[in-house]
Design a protein around this nucleic acid. Structure first.
Ligand SMILES: [Mn+2]
Ligand SMILES: [Mn+2]
Ligand SMILES: [Zn+2]
Ligand SMILES: [Zn+2]
Lengths: 164, 164
DNA sequence: ATAATTTTGAAAATGAATTTCATTTCCTTG
DNA sequence: CAAGGAAATGAAATTCATTTTCAAAATTAT
């Protein structure tokens, strides 16, 4: 009764990047070959557009961006390509409180956590080694073998606080 | 084409409690009155069953428990009652990585975070003032006014590690 | 009891995520 | 440079937890 999500919210996610996207595309190509998959025009276009992204974008919004120049590329392919990029380590899947799946380029960098503004939707990243260490201590105390973790602070960003 | 979720997973969530459930039921009664709502047999039954719960339970699973003794009470009412209990502060809504909404009795206690076992589904609670303090520092650094936060560690619980 | 308002429960709707399937594209082999 | 086998594509359908709708039933104040 419905093919795929109709347009909806989606706060900021910039564009443009200063990366060797070529290197990342190469990594994708290798992964594809190794997995017995095939390189396609669509995957190339979608990956290129995604890797230019700064921030956290939904498959739906990425589809909209891609769709501007490439009317023939469908949402399903964007969706599937993001799954693929996640598997090969070029994208990280994130789900915040609005329950939408977002993707962010995973630039081999270290793990990070997020501040999410409930006013304007801005997503800010941070990294705090002390907290990470303490999380390790907590896990140890419970005999817990941690594989991943998620920490999100929800509230109002500086701009929203000032404009209040 | 489908009224509500059919049975699915759902790891542990114990039962039995050592609380003055009567006090919590009184709180619900007051909230209901103050909001111009009505006390009903169903709400009483559902709230009672929920408040006996230890752990984190989905509306679906709570419905199943209630349904054993009260075939006439529908899922929708359980669902709505949990929303009501959340609003009046007797329940906390939690969404972990499996994207199901769970509820846990909110016993006026302090905030806590969770360890979630990806082996057996066990959910363990913890509280770490040092981490909380550091989170405050991070927020401060970004001029961020934190309203709530979420921290979850995913991995294998002691038992699952030992049985591996 | 009566009336006004809220609640209930079955069914339908919603919406993001995922799958299906007929067709097209890719890529290796001859 | 075919040809053929395998994978990809895209539109449409499906899934499934959640939420809404609506007519009938229950609650509360009068
Ligand atoms: Mn991020
Ligand atoms: Mn808890
Ligand atoms: Zn903001
Ligand atoms: Zn476990």
């Amino acid at each position: 009764m419905q093919g795929r999500p109709k347009g909806r919210k989606s706060p900021l996610q910039g564009s443009s990047a200063s990366h060797s996207i070529s290197g990342e595309k190469e990594r994708l190509r290798l992964f594809i070959k190794k997995a017995g998959l095939k390189s396609t025009r669509q995957r190339d276009i979608i990956a290129t557009e995604f890797l230019k992204t700064i921030g956290h974008i939904t498959a739906e919004d990425l589809y909209k961006k891609v769709n501007r120049k490439h009317k023939e590329i469908g949402f399903t392919t964007v969706y599937r390509t993001m799954k693929l990029l996640s598997k090969c380590g070029l994208a990280s899947e994130r789900v915040f409180a609005d329950n939408l799946t977002r993707y962010e380029p995973a630039r081999g960098e270290e793990h990070h956590d997020h501040l999410i503004c409930i006013g304007c939707g801005e997503i800010t990243e941070f990294e705090n080694p002390k907290i990470e260490r303490l999380q390790g201590e907590v896990a140890k105390e419970f005999g817990f073998n941690t594989i991943s973790h998620k920490m999100e602070l929800y509230g109002y960003c500086r701009r929203c606080v000032e404009n209040a």
